[in-house]
Design a protein around this nucleic acid. Sequence first.
DNA 1: TTGAAATGACTGACTGGTTGGTCATAATAA
DNA 2: TTATTATGACCAACCAGTCAGTCATTTCAA
Lengths: 174, 174
Amino acid sequence: MALKLWAERGFDQTPVEAIAREAGIAKGTFYLYFESKDALLIEVLRRNSLVPNVLALIRALETEGLEDAVHGFVRGAWRHLSEHRELVLVALREMPTNLEKARGAVERVLVPTNAALASHLASRIEARPAGQFSPAIAVRALIGMIVLVFLTQEVLGAGRSMPVAEDEITSTIA
Amino acid sequence: MALKLWAERGFDQTPVEAIAREAGIAKGTFYLYFESKDALLIEVLRRNSLVPNVLALIRALETEGLEDAVHGFVRGAWRHLSEHRELVLVALREMPTNLEKARGAVERVLVPTNAALASHLASRIEARPAGQFSPAIAVRALIGMIVLVFLTQEVLGAGRSMPVAEDEITSTIA
DNA sequence: TTGAAATGACTGACTGGTTGGTCATAATAA
DNA sequence: TTATTATGACCAACCAGTCAGTCATTTCAA
């Protein structure tokens, strides 16, 4: 899969020929199926969209108490990231600069996710003592915790120099 | 500065000639001062090292109570990120693949920072009721919150579609 | 059944353009 | 004049994308 190569070497540093070879076809054949190299990137990001999974996570929130809900969300998100580590790496690397279209995808994932989570948390949180609490920020903080712990742990190799048991991670965050 | 161009277009997509032009010199002159394009990246990352600032933040922790300490850390880190937005973007993009040497820098920043913060938190936290609490993870979660909220807010343009007052951010996280 | 003709998926050599890095030459300073 | 610093034309390597041609398979006429 192209994702594997991109995660290792980066999009720009991976020639179309390498992708084709990996797929067992010739470079020319590649261009029978894809308009361009960029088109493949867009296609890959689209097919691997996190939206359905994220929405599923959010729907799950509806059926549980706040404690369990957040706990479950963290676990689910963590598993999710683990299962898509290459996608996460590539998306993170290429989105900021390479692709205006892919950037639109961020808007489609990030905005609805945040909105849904925030409103959900807000509706639950009224029952709590909390004083000054901003759901909009809290949501990003929660997701931020998960993503960056994942990054330092799995991507930057901190897992080797600062090992921590996986279960400890999810249970501590939540 | 090269950082500006890299933050906009990406390292690979920025020709040496563009960097030279930006600096008001010819391409040949560039190679009088730098071994290679990669050498410049390494040099830039080194000169902009976050280590001193991070260490200063940590030292500040020593003189305050836990509440204020964390609060201060968050504010400091946030300001820090804001002042180095280009560096953050570039480092995030180039570190995972482009540069083994730069990756060593991660180890030099990430590991000591985490260790210092964790041990600090751990020493303070004993006075608290906390049951199952893992400082090692808590630290990464804290930093993760700050960094990803920053990213969604400042880099991915979520600030436009989901605007939040800056002060609200730091006060809510802490 | 058989052999010729048509098809189209596939190939990889090739092209045009780009860019990292070099070097002979020029400008400038001492 | 001599030494130092700067220049930009040039080179070689690389790569996205093209296209003329190959060949296994299918179609169909005899």
